[in-house]
Design a binder for these strands. Structure first.
Lengths: 341, 341
DNA sequence: TCCTCGTCTGCAAACGCTTCCAGAATCTTA
DNA sequence: TAAGATTCTGGAAGCGTTTGCAGACGAGGA
């Protein structure tokens, strides 16, 4: 491993000049810059990031805290974040923080506080105001997907509005018997996504003058098999079967559709289904959905933290940023079948 | 930000002693160790990783290169790798290296060579012998999932054997008209997975005395919607329809099953389908599959590189390691329906 | 001609740790 | 009791960069 001194000797200049030539900071004549680059290349020299971090205080790393990886929403965020970071010359340190308390503590006590990252991106990380203070005290740029989170710039779709939009779509088609298959309120790790989408649903119903019925909300985990099971239970009981279902995510919606198929219930003739996400599988199931783009959300928060790092004085929106979520109509929703008799 | 000196002053000892006390290396009396820890805690001190890297030459980072994130196989690997690394006190730097040539070069010219990671884990990264040499020249532990790769310890299931196993299962049930829906041979980025599974399929057929027919292999991308399209084409043509399909992955198999359902073809009565992976969705589709555990594969390679780092002299298996892949029978495969007439 | 200004370069001082070395204190053993 | 071994601690050198400062040089303006 050759150090900067070797390059300096080979190029016939001082270490300082090598540093300036290679980093592009300060004055260096074109001639020497060239000689230095060639010397560096021929030696296979590459700067020691620890040494340069030590003096600059910058690591060029950004920490990303995320609760799940193997799910479309989260995987897409990572892809977006990674792409954006690499484009800007930063490296991504990944922390898969499941909701167990032990791991949470580890992050706060141990990781975040270490001097290894220049900025932090937190994905649907629900933290207490006290923890927020600790984070802010680090003096490092931080941004989140999810939220709102007091004091930290965050980003997400308006889940209440999305829930309303979905429900209103069904109402507009003429449905009055609409069930909501959503997440378990007690289990949500993300920013009350589950209760927010439920809230939007309830608001839309209320506005339409439809009384909200206890039984019309059923909880499930956010994956296809779980939703499939729940779907079979709901749809298996003819007295309970609604004319439409608002599923809190596309995975849930697909589970429900598969359950309906299994039971010989036609979608959308006998049952309309709408989801949220515009998941890659939505199209093949003809699923009407509300689109969001987690990859772009990832790019956006990267932009926030990096710009903060590189443009002194700049700062991202102080408050929560709401992203548009638009309805994509496909063939899983339709007017309810006219009642017989 | 308080440095080691502040801690030293507060505890009334030298910097050297603080370093020893906190790192656990060298002699320190219990008494002073305690005083130092308390001083450190009360100041919220945390060692500067750049400073300590600079002198020790260790970063405590491991680089992971992976072509895709948002796919079950790859997502599971990341989860496994992340868990194992964090357990051992290492951080994970994620590099999502899509197959574009430009990005590849970037990794070799730019990233791998930087002094930012102690070891490298490469997931299904196909590299030339020359590139391998460059990697090895770094003198850093490196291991791969996929392979084999000359000179680098790698790990994977035996794809040829998996292909055989799947096909033999169908043969054993009495099928003779078996199609293979696999990956595009020209497009494979992973270690010829596609052609290996195809090879296993062909070997099994040959062994059973069944001539291999050009038309009995069809290529698709490895996702449900693509496989669904392909499935509809194959199954839509009654003259072309086989009695069984060996799908190169569970996602492909599920696409085919959905296509069959759409066309009113009963699985397994009219068509048997087998896949590879034991994907989380396999169970709900009753899909017979060949199981592999990417998360454990991730843990294994982590073990390899970390042990190499921490146990001087130890080294992982020089050659490619083959993992067992076992058949999981479900309801998507059965004896072919007896021919009429 | 002299002065100023912009460009270019080198010296040397950090940056915050770890670790070698040596010395002091305590404990073992002959 | 002396000599050696063991445990504990501090001083100081270094890890490989970046950067403030100062000096040198040439060009342009008065």
């Amino acid at each position: 491993m050759s150090g900067i001194e070797d390059v300096a000797n080979l190029a016939g200049v001082s270490k300082a000049t090598v540093s300036r030539a290679l980093s592009g900071r300060g004055y260096v004549s074109n001639d020497t810059r060239l000689r230095v680059s060639q010397a560096a290349a021929s030696l296979g020299y590459v700067v020691s990031s620890s040494a340069s971090s030590l003096v600059t205080g910058r690591t060029n790393n950004v920490g990303v805290i995320i609760p799940v990886i193997n799910q479309w929403f989260f995987g897409s965020i990572i892809e977006g974040v990674e792409r954006a970071l690499l484009d800007r010359g930063y490296d991504l340190m990944l922390y898969n923080l499941t909701k167990s308390h032990e791991e949470r503590t580890r992050v706060f006590e141990y990781f975040l506080v270490r001097k290894r990252v220049d900025a932090v991106i937190a994905v649907t990380l629900e933290i207490t105001p006290e923890e927020t203070q600790r984070l802010l005290a680090l003096g490092k740029p931080i941004a989140g997907i999810g939220g709102p989170l007091e004091g930290i710039p965050t980003l997400s779709i308006d889940d209440v509005a999305a829930g309303r939009l979905a429900t209103e779509h069904l109402l507009l088609l003429g449905h009055r018997d609409i069930m909501h298959v959503g997440g378990d309120i007690d289990e949500q790790m993300d920013f009350h996504v589950h209760s927010k989408r439920l809230k939007g649903y309830m608001e839309a119903l209320t506005e339409a003058g439809i009384p909200y019925d206890q039984d019309s909300y059923v909880a499930t985990r956010f994956d296809i098999p779980s939703a499939y099971q729940v779907g079979k239970q709901i749809l298996g009981d003819p007295r309970r079967r609604p004319t439409a279902i608002f599923a809190a995510s596309d995975e849930v919606a697909i589970g429900v559709i598969l359950a309906a198929r299994e039971l010989g219930i036609s979608v959308p003739d006998d049952l309309s289904v709408i989801g949220i996400d515009n998941h890659p599988l939505a199209e093949m199931f003809g699923l009407t959905s509300i689109e969001q783009r987690p990859d772009l959300q990832g790019e956006q928060v990267v932009e926030w933290v990096i710009r903060q790092l590189e443009e002194p004085g700049w700062s991202p929106p102080k408050r929560h940023t709401v992203l548009p979520a638009t309805l994509i109509m496909r063939s899983s929703t339709a007017r309810p079948r006219p009642r017989l008799g």
